[in-house]
């Protein structure tokens, strides 16, 4: 069974966020990029576990990005993916990315497409659902556990404090969340092997993005903590009512 894992490049959480071109573009200078954690820790690792369990098939990774993204691709290959596809385009918006992945997947024989639940940059959580829709497949999110039983998947999904146990026929798109697998640290043999694993570069399919970013704004700075004397409950109530506006 061949599995396609969608990975995305995101800024490391310690990066300093800044904007350029009159606040219309994210300033990527000096930003350290990593593989989106839920793509790497859950989707990719579970795909590798399934391949190991089944004893057959191939785990491919796909990303939409330019040549500089090869660094995160090599990491995913070092963790154990067999090969990689890079759609050679800037990821304009979720629809553009999903369309590229779906168009490519149509030409291949995947039974399972995995994404992370969401990326930690824009947190849109859109690509998985869009890929499923564009392929006409079922879609499950968030998936906290995933097992494959012959031609269907069994998923546990934690929603609203409950665990839903779901089954769906394959092919299927699943967005992986916490609990599905444990992070795998690549070993040195994996890093060495990744040197020679193939990265197929595919020119983008002709798709127009639906979203254009007009402007970035930083969230307002968090206000400091106000300490209220325990004897002064009236002041606490006034602050909650007039300033925080929560009562």
């Amino acid at each position: 069974m061949n599995i396609l894992v969608c990975i995305s490049k995101v800024p490391d959480t310690t990066s300093k966020i800044a904007f350029t071109d009159n606040n219309t573009r994210f300033d990527s200078s000096n930003v350290q990029y990593i593989v989106n954690p839920s793509d790497e820790w859950y989707a990719l690792v579970r795909a590798l576990e399934l391949k190991e369990q089944l004893g057959t098939g191939k785990v491919s990774i796909i990303t939409v990005g330019l040549a500089e993204d090869d660094a995160i691709i090599r990491k995913a290959l070092a963790i154990g993916a067999d090969d990689a596809i890079r759609i050679n385009a800037l990821p304009a918006d979720s629809f553009f990315v999903a369309s590229q992945i779906a168009e490519y997947a149509k030409t291949q024989d995947y039974k399972l497409v995995l994404t992370g639940k969401e990326t930690i940059d824009y947190n849109n959580a859109e690509v998985g659902g869009m890929v499923a829709e564009l392929l006409g497949w079922e879609f499950i999110t968030p998936a906290n556990k995933l097992d494959v039983e012959s031609d269907k998947v069994r998923v546990e999904s934690e929603l609203g404090g409950e665990i839903l146990v779901l089954e769906a026929p394959m092919p299927v798109v699943i967005s992986a969340a916490k609990g599905m697998a444990d992070q795998r640290i690549p070993n040195m043999r994996g890093i060495m092997a990744a040197r020679t694993k193939p990265i197929t570069v595919v020119e983008p399919f002709n798709v127009a993005p639906l979203v254009a970013i007009q402007k970035f704004e930083m969230p307002p700075a968090k206000a400091g903590v106000k300490l209220v004397d325990p004897e002064n409950m009236e002041e606490l109530v006034r602050l909650l009512h007039d300033e925080a506006k929560v009562i």
């Binding site: 090869d70 990491k75 070092a78 040195m188």
Partner: peptide, 10 residues
């Protein structure tokens, strides 16, 4: 190199 950084991260 990217590989140096990957080794460091690992």
């Amino acid at each position: 190199t990217d590989e140096h950084k990957l080794i460091r991260e690992t």
